[in-house]
Simulated assay, not measured.
Amino acid sequence: MDTDILVIGGGPAGLAFARQFAGSRLRLTVLEQSPPEVLQHPPYDGREIALTHRSCDILRELDIWRRIPEHEIYRLRDAKVYNGTSDYTLHFPEPARARGGKTDRLGNLVSNHNIRRAAYQAVAECANVVLRCGTGVKNVRTDKHAATAELADGTSLRARLLVAADSRMSQTRRQLGIAADLHDFGRTVIVFRTRHSLSNQHTASECFFYGRTLALLPLETHLTNCVVTIANTRAHELLSLAPAELVKQVQTMLRGKLGDMEIAGTVHSYPLMGVHAKRFYATRAALIGDAAVGMHPVTAHGFNLGLESADLLAKRILQAERRGKDIGADALLEEYSFRHQLRTRPLYHGTNAMVGLFTNDAAPAKLLRGAALRLSNNLPPLKKLISKQLTG
């Protein structure tokens, strides 16, 4: 074998997975299409990642957390959900952790490019991990003996196990013959930072207006990341605006809740699609990260589930290696798939159903939306369950 584990995709999930094996006897090769300088110095892409307490713990275990600049780790104190033009909110306050004591936050917000850079730095120190950048994967195939990847440069690599961590539209997943539920929401996400005169109180807000959705992710007290979701057919109405005019639109939507607002950086946009693989493994292959599950961002689960998948799979592989067992055995991969499916499938379909309701502007749906918020607010067990999911 050229390597023990072949990881396709050098994003945060693929790198977090590789870092799990620091100091082990297993050899890993990570294949990434982007050039090495993109991994070393990832550009800012507008995405602010809401990290649960569990995700922060995983990043600490992997020696990634300490590499993120402390002044760029932002406190997420609590969260509120608004419906339409009503001021009534579903409020998720600061949680009390099971280990005892009160925390001062639901979680943390960290820019995607800072996580990617820190993950790269941690993996670059691993003597048993090889990073091959700047070349794509042309084809993959597996059998009961090995997994093989044919690269765009004409070379090929054989491994005991292949791990796909490439993207929501994973070509590797398709070549492995793994089907997936794809959900095109027909919407575009527009993200940008704003500065404002009134404090955001470190409170995240999800505002389900009519015709568009606005999420506010608090960074500094007077710095907030705005995430506007709008139908693809109307996205040009916002993307064609000058940045200053775009911010004025948000200020109007908020009815001045953050005071005077101005743009604080660049504007980015992305298509909104969700995906959930029918299973997370094939013969000598497994899926992690977005190749396994790509979530709607409204519940901020996507990145956290990707970290969980890397952690779950890696720990089972390391345990098998210590016991002298086959790291690519069907039983191991099937157990990983079962456990991660048990965690992700209800979240994926539940989130999509919730988004379907809260973006439906028909009169009956509007009434149901308001009733759902009030019901959730006044059912402590349900509210506690949702809070536990938010904090991880």
Rank of each mutant, 00 (worst) to 15 (best):
D63G: 04
R47H: 14
H202C: 05
F358L: 12
G84V: 05
A286D: 01
L151M: 05
L312I: 00
F92N: 09
A310H: 01
L390F: 15
A292E: 01
L182G: 01
F185S: 06
T391V: 15
R67K: 12
I317Q: 03
A231I: 00
E48G: 13
V189N: 10
G392R: 02
R54Y: 14
P218R: 08
F209R: 13
P36W: 11
V7C: 04
A180T: 05
I230L: 14
H301F: 13
D45F: 08
A371I: 09
L287R: 03
I5P: 03
P35R: 11
Y82C: 01
R97Q: 14
Q33W: 02
H236S: 09
L373W: 08
L332Q: 10
R195E: 11
L382H: 04
E70N: 04
V38K: 14
K366T: 08
G370N: 14
L51A: 11
D166Y: 10
L6N: 04
I8Y: 03
T283W: 00
E37C: 06
R60S: 08
V189K: 08
N83H: 12
G294N: 02
L131R: 13
T266C: 10
L109H: 10
N377R: 14
T172Q: 10
V81C: 09
N378H: 15
I68H: 12
I68C: 08
D153V: 00
L357V: 07
A180D: 05
L332W: 12
Q201Y: 11
E37D: 15
L39V: 12
E262W: 01
D153P: 03
F303I: 05
N112C: 13
K102Q: 13
G11E: 06
I58C: 06
G302W: 09
T85F: 13
H296I: 03
A152T: 13
E72H: 15
K315D: 06
K366A: 09
L28D: 03
A18L: 07
T135P: 01
N352R: 12
T29H: 00
T188A: 11
N304L: 07
A159F: 02
N360S: 12
Y82W: 13
V227Q: 10
L26R: 06
G9P: 06
Q171D: 11
T142H: 08
Q249L: 09
M261A: 03
G9C: 02
Q20N: 10
Q389H: 09
F21G: 05
G134W: 02
M354R: 02
